[in-house]
């Protein structure tokens, strides 16, 4: 009887620690579990570019990446994209990829914008805000810096100066 009681006690206390630990752990690490954070790998997607070619995130595996969300209706984005272009020109030979995901706008404004600033990096078209939601966007512009090992090194939720972008890109190498 005595030994049996002891076993019951230990089993129950272990269960409490496990279940309770799970519950408390959940509250500590939940919240942003679905939204990618620093150290996570960015959620995969498959999107069209302006010419109707499909691009998968996995196509760019192993490369340093800048994933930025932009729209023509967002003045800081409009300012930022040409800056990305200059950095892209500088770093592309070393492997840098820029994926600029448009925030579900119509064809024409995107088309116009790209030709106006002569953007040569990959411009992708989100549809019905799907990828935007996957990435948990709250404000624009938002830029994800992804290291070659496929993890996010930094998330910028504000507009950046060219200098600031440069510093962050350098860290990717």
């Amino acid at each position: 009887m005595g030994a049996y009681r002891k076993k019951v006690q230990i089993v129950i206390l272990i269960l409490v620690v496990l279940i309770g630990g799970f519950a408390i752990g959940n509250t500590l690490f939940r919240g942003d579990s679905k939204i990618p954070g620093v150290g996570d790998s960015p959620p995969g997607f498959s999107l069209f570019d302006l010419n109707g070619n499909a691009h998968n995130l996995s196509d760019y595996e192993g490369k340093p990446m800048v994933i930025t969300f932009w729209g023509t209706f967002c003045p800081p984005c409009v300012k930022e994209l040409p800056e990305f272009q200059r950095l892209y020109d500088k770093w592309h030979s070393k492997g840098l990829e820029v994926l600029a995901i448009n925030l579900s706008e119509a064809d024409l404004p995107v088309q116009n914008f790209v030709s106006k600033f002569d953007l040569s990096f990959t411009v992708l078209r989100d549809v019905n805000r799907k990828v935007e939601r996957q990435y948990g966007l709250r404000s624009y512009p938002t830029t994800f810096f992804v290291k070659p090992d496929g993890t996010i090194s930094e998330i910028a939720v504000t507009a950046m100066t060219e200098q600031q972008i440069q510093e962050r890109v350098e860290k990717l190498f």
Partner: peptide, 14 residues
């Protein structure tokens, strides 16, 4: 949703 409130509930459960 805080960890301490959950801890209280876990303790009540125990």
């Amino acid at each position: 949703e805080s960890w301490w409130y959950t801890t209280l509930l876990v303790m009540i459960g125990t």
